Computed example of a mutant assay.
Amino acid sequence: MIVDFTGRRVLVTGSTSGIGFAAARGFLAAGASVVVNGRGAESVAAAVARLGGPAAAVSGFAGDLATESACSRLVGDHPHFDVIVNNIGVYGPQDFFDIPDSEWERFFRTNVMSGVRLARAYAPAMVERGWGRIVFVSSESALNIPVDMIHYGFTKTAQLAISRGLAKRLAGTGVTVNAVLPGPTLSEGVAGMLRADVDRTGDSLEKVAADFIAAQRASSILRRAATVDEVANLIVYVSSRQASATTGAALRVDGGVVDTIV
């Protein structure tokens, strides 16, 4: 199977590091023109430089896509995409009774409304062209709501509802909409969260991550954290022409954490 995105324009939100960066790198390697996104100009420029490739193939957009103004500016600067990967997201443990309204709203604006706005802006032209891909990067936390991040789980479940509903709305158009559900993934953010345990124990980051999964995600079949590239591979595939019969799906790359057959 040769996955080829030659001539396709791809947006990956929240792509200066982690899963988003790995997905941007995968699309670029497959011939796409890619726009990477982050909140700050410095981090975006650094990501573009790390990706390398021809200047015409990779560019950046700095802006907080949790805001309506940044989404509007993005659409003005880049009016055409064939593939949108809604990867931008925030997370962090906090007890339910300590979460103020402002945090619920921040998580919803970032994790949910950013993707809603971009899909609403770009899908009509995809329909006119008869081809397009919209991917929401959700999480196994959409199904296994984490007790210490209920607000995060809520937004990830919302992404599943939106992706399924939008896929049905776009039935028969050639535009597919899917959600990808990563499990524990060794991104820079997770590595930072585990750094104190690495320093305390002297164990490798991979060992500490595996111990965390054994303690906190005991249902894992993989028994280790996924790499960002392992998650990005599924994002790239489901965005390809080969995945034309996959739409309205919640595709797990969770290492078997979610204990269900289907």
Rank of each mutant, 00 (worst) to 15 (best):
L234C: 08
A57P: 01
D148P: 00
G92W: 12
R223S: 09
R73F: 00
S43W: 00
E68W: 10
A22F: 06
S239Y: 02
G256N: 01
R164C: 02
A167C: 11
W104V: 12
A158H: 01
V75M: 03
G202N: 13
M1Y: 14
D95Y: 08
A23M: 01
G92N: 06
D77V: 02
G192F: 09
L186E: 03
R25V: 04
E206I: 10
F97Q: 12
A30H: 14
M1T: 15
G130N: 12
Y122N: 10
G165M: 09
T185I: 03
G174F: 02
S59M: 05
V257F: 02
T67H: 10
D101T: 15
G115V: 03
F81A: 05
T110D: 07
V48T: 09
D101Q: 13
S114W: 03
S102V: 13
I213F: 05
G248L: 10
A218T: 04
M1A: 15
R241M: 05
L205T: 04
K168H: 12
A29D: 13
A243T: 04
V175P: 08
G165N: 13
T67Q: 12
D197K: 14
F212K: 09
R109G: 03
R109C: 07
P79V: 08
R224W: 06
N111E: 05
G202Q: 12
H80I: 09
A45P: 02
A218S: 14
T13L: 03
P146Q: 01
S138T: 07
K207T: 15
R25H: 04
R224L: 09
L186Q: 04
V177E: 01
E230A: 11
D4A: 12
Q159L: 15
V127H: 02
A142I: 04
A196T: 13
S59A: 12
W131M: 05
V116H: 08
Q216R: 15
V228C: 14
V258C: 06
Y122T: 10
S59G: 11
A62K: 09
V48D: 04
T13M: 09
L118D: 09
V44K: 10
T247S: 14
I134Y: 10
V262I: 11
V85G: 06
V135L: 12
V175H: 05
V208S: 09
P182H: 01
G63I: 04
I213N: 02
V34D: 03
P124G: 13
M1F: 15
M149F: 01
A171V: 12
L118K: 08
A41D: 13
D259V: 03
K156F: 07
F21T: 08
K168M: 14
D98L: 14
A57Y: 00
K156W: 08
S141A: 14
S72G: 14
G153H: 03
V228L: 01
S204K: 08
M193A: 14
M1C: 14
C71Y: 04
S69T: 15
R73S: 13
I145S: 11
V90M: 15
D199S: 13
V83E: 00
V231E: 06
L205V: 05
Y122R: 10
L251D: 01
G153T: 07
L166E: 06
A215V: 00
V112L: 08
Y152I: 04
S33Q: 11
R120Y: 09
